[in-house]
Design a protein around this nucleic acid. Structure first.
Length: 804
RNA sequence: GGUCCCAUGGUCCAGUGGUUAAGAUGUCUCGUUUACACCGAGAAGGUCGGAGGUUCGAAUCCUCCUGGGACCACCA
């Protein structure tokens, strides 16, 4: 479809956009040529999750990124602006389970992954299509080998880079295995992610149990919601401020029914006003318990086995399910007269979203990537990055300060990057494959590939083919990576780390990381950590942090609240240009949330039509050749000076990722300064039907009308690429490849001052005519042009038909 | 519970110590002028979230409170 023409349309509409954006999507006009590229500007875009349709937040933030990309192209940069699609992880698994009614625990892993892939194949390109409709100028809308191609985080290429970087870290001894508390779903027999936990307020029994103190025989009362874990107790604590129990410090308490003795000690975890102020610390009761055990270096006693039943550590409760055990021990304690009181309390209980089972916290071995020892280094490189807005760096700094444990990177899931390791049957040796290929060790019959290195306790001790390892049976690692292991190398991937060393060297660090404030502690932090581990450099030159798109009441959009605004609907109704302009005009997304209002988006459609109408008016005049600045009339020079001032202002603001202030000024220029006043003042001179003006004066007006229009369109082009390109196309100018306009030297130092005076004068005259009830064309007596506007007198007299 | 961000006419937003708080949008009234009714002119609408404090002077600086948001943690 050809580009629509101004003369063919009356109003701007989403239908017109369709012709343009479809053409753009097909044309691949923003392809990146690494050989020609000199000034590289790369944007490490956040890959949207493909499973759900693009939501308003992604749509708007992507528009902002497109503002940045289009502006930088105008400034002569070779812009690398790739579209990534995030396809790893839990939401895909959950989606497949729901859609096909399958469970990864009932069918084989291979089968389950096929369902995940099936789901992905059905949904994958929908989001790309929405971006195309928004007019986003991604480097490419096609997959492939070229730089800037659409990439998928679950592709073998991407996953093999995740694995390659991991392999190097592993060989350097930066990865180790240690126990970690997992959310265990005893019904599904699997660990589940935090996001799969529903917290429900459930009434439960808060049992006050009588304990004895060794030696003195004194009775103490401890309240608990988990009496079935009493046998695993490793200490009894009270708050250090709690005077009531000071005297017990260092003494031992005797566990009721079990008779084992545990130390009584002060610890801040205990709250004075909760229960009796005494707490029994058990393993697996909750996450606090676990931290406590770590801190005290106590060995936790685990009494709940992975099928959700009690084991031998629970003594007579062995074999019972947790809930049964709880009831049984309460009964037993009552029988023995050990229950002082039983209270019913509402207890916030973690439940599995899918099975409805109560979550148990159990310890399992997981892989950790060292990060605590690199905190200072990450802080240092973060200091070299420009943050927009500056204050957003604080979120990162605060997070780095609070990092206290290493990064657990393994997960017991399925649709994710497999961990590329093989373990010897005695569990003491690890085979590490050579970096570069994509490995799936979990598959049946997989073996460590030739060239694998064998490691023991973090040190390389030989090659897989060495005689000493000939008899060993290797089994493939079944765990996968935390998806942030993939996401945290996005900038390495798009800049072709390991693949095109020459280009990478030229392009790294990436220029810009645009992202939301809520993932600073994950995406940004992990990327900086991983980038530093690979290159010892900051991963980015600039970081732009944005806030949120919220609903009309200022609440975060969520499915649960039912307040999600669908960008597809808005696109159909108002089109991309209105949405884009609204998003720039409404506020600065890097400084505050943007409230999504249909009414206000709709209102911007008026601006689009204003642009069309002004353009139509101007296009009826021939543009007369070049005019030296000095040969223009005073009025024309004044407005040209102003638009040049605006040119510098927009340039400086755009450079700092501020599109809000320029958008406001440009909009104001269009409506107030240009359309309502300049055009009105020079109309008579441009037409010059009565021959009041010289040919030169008339041509000066026509030249200036075109000049102002072209400049305005060029300045607002990054925000509204479609309407501007279309009009400029009619004028024979290709805005898509145009340079950013150069601000010319100004004659008037403060053009706005005179302009405001002119605007005020016009208002006075218009008001007067209205009062007198005469039409605006009719002559008016008794009004003089004020002295300070003498320079513009001729135009003003003609415009208002003043009779002196 | 911790850390951080935000609060200005119905709605959005500017204003970071100095006369009467800028503008947009919406509302109402009047008008139709060789691009435009998705138009033009005009009007109404604010105790700058609340309470203290600093200052000659506070929307602006400080403290507390209220409401909204983000992330983290937690409920024996």
């Amino acid at each position: 479809m050809p580009m629509p023409k101004l003369s063919d349309i009356k109003n701007w509409s989403p239908e017109i956009e369709k012709a343009i954006t479809e053409e753009w999507k097909k044309a691949e006009m923003w392809r990146f040529d690494s050989k020609k590229a000199r000034k590289i500007y790369s944007i490490d875009t956040p890959p949207p999750y493909v499973n759900a349709p693009i939501h308003m937040g992604q749509a708007i933030t992507c528009c902002y990124m497109d503002f940045f990309a289009r502006y930088r192209r105008m400034k002569g940069y070779d812009v690398l602006f790739p579209l990534g699609l995030d396809r790893n992880g839990l939401p895909i698994e959950v989606g497949a389970e729901k859609k096909y009614n399958v469970s990864p625990f009932k069918i084989t892993r291979e089968e389950f992954l096929k369902y995940c892939e099936k789901l992905l194949n059905e949904t994958s390109m929908e989001s790309a299509d929405t971006f195309a409709k928004l007019g986003i100028s991604f480097t490419s809308y096609k997959e492939g080998k070229h730089i800037g191609a659409v990439y998928k985080t679950d592709s073998p290429e991407y996953r093999s880079l995740t694995q390659a970087t991991f392999i190097e870290l592993y060989k350097k001894g930066l990865v180790y295995e240690a126990s970690r508390i997992s959310n265990w779903d005893p019904k599904l027999r699997t660990t589940i992610a935090d996001s799969e936990i529903d917290y429900k307020d459930i009434e439960s029994s808060f049992v006050h149990v009588r304990w004895k103190v060794r030696g003195t025989g004194e009775e103490i009362i401890i309240a608990t919601t988990r009496p079935e874990l009493i046998s695993t107790c490793s200490a009894v604590i009270y708050n250090p401020e709690d005077k009531r129990y000071e005297r017990l410090s260092g003494k031992h308490a005797i566990i009721p029914l079990f008779g084992r003795e545990v130390l009584i000690m002060a610890h801040p975890y205990a709250k004075i006003d909760k229960g009796t102020g005494l707490v029994m610390m058990c393993a697996g009761g909750d996450l606090t318990d676990v931290q406590f055990h770590r801190e005290m270096k106590f060995t936790p006693i685990i009494a709940v086995s992975i099928d959700g039943t009690m084991n031998e550590k629970a003594g007579f409760l062995k074999g019972l399910k947790v809930k049964e055990a709880r009831q049984k021990i309460i009964d037993k304690l009552k029988e023995e007269g050990l229950v002082a009181r039983e209270e019913r309390i509402i207890h916030r209980t973690p439940m599995s979203e899918r099975s409805g089972a109560e979550i148990e916290f159990i310890e399992m071995p997981e892989l950790y990537l060292k990060q605590v020892e690199f905190k200072d280094e990450v802080r240092k490189i973060a200091g070299k990055i420009n943050f927009y807005p500056e204050e957003s760096k604080e979120i990162l700094d605060k997070w780095i300060d609070s990092v206290s444990i290493d990064w657990p990177i393994s997960r017991r899931r399925f649709y994710a990057t497999p961990i590329p390791l093989w373990i010897s049957d005695d569990g003491k040796l690890t085979a590490v494959p050579p970096a570069g290929d994509y490995y799936e060790p979990w598959k049946k019959g997989s073996k460590p590939p030739a060239g694998s290195e064998v490691m023991k306790e973090g040190k390389i001790i030989g090659k897989i083919n060495d005689k000493q390892f000939s008899g060993i049976k290797w089994s493939g690692e079944t765990r996968v990576f935390d998806t942030w292991m993939d996401s945290s190398i996005s900038e390495l991937f798009i800049l072709k780390y390991n693949e095109n060393k020459e280009f990478f060297k030229k392009a790294y660090p990436a220029t810009l990381r645009p992202q939301g404030k809520e993932i600073v502690r994950t995406w940004l932090y992990y990327t900086l950590l991983r980038g530093w581990l690979e290159t010892k450099k900051p991963a980015f030159k600039d970081v732009w942090i944005h806030q949120h798109i919220v609903d009309e009441k200022g609440m975060k959009m969520s499915k649960r609240l039912g307040n999600v605004v669908d960008p597809q609907g808005l696109l159909r109704e108002y089109g991309a240009e209105a949405i884009r302009l609204w998003s720039a005009i409404e506020g600065d997304l890097s400084r505050g949330d943007l409230k999504c209002s249909r009414e206000r988006i709709k209102a911007e459609m008026k601006t689009l039509n204003k642009i069309l109408n002004v353009s139509r008016f101007i296009m009826q005049f021939e543009k007369s050749g070049k005019f030296a600045h000095d040969n223009l009339t005073n009025t024309d020079r004044l407005f040209i000076d102003y638009v040049n001032e605006l040119t510098s202002f927009c340039d400086e603001s755009y450079d700092k990722y501020d599109f809000y202030n320029p958008a406001i000024k440009l909009r104001n220029f269009l409506w107030e300064i240009f359309a309502s006043h300049y055009v009105e003042i020079v109309k008579a001179r441009a037409y010059n039907q009565e021959g009041k003006f010289s040919k030169g004066e008339s041509e000066s007006a026509r030249y200036t009308l075109h000049y102002l229009l072209e400049r305005f369109l060029a300045l607002i082009y990054p925000i509204m690429p479609q309407i501007t390109t279309m009009i400029m196309n009619d004028k024979g100018i290709d805005l898509l490849r145009a340079e950013y306009p150069r601000a010319e030297k100004m004659k008037n130092k403060e053009p706005l001052k005179d302009i405001i005076n002119i605007m005020t004068f016009n208002s006075v005259v218009w008001k007067k005519k209205q009062e007198k009830g005469i039409s605006l064309r009719e002559p008016l007596d008794g009004i003089e042009v004020p002295k300070e506007l003498e320079k513009y007198e001729k135009d003003l007299i003609a415009c208002h038909n003043l009779r002196l």
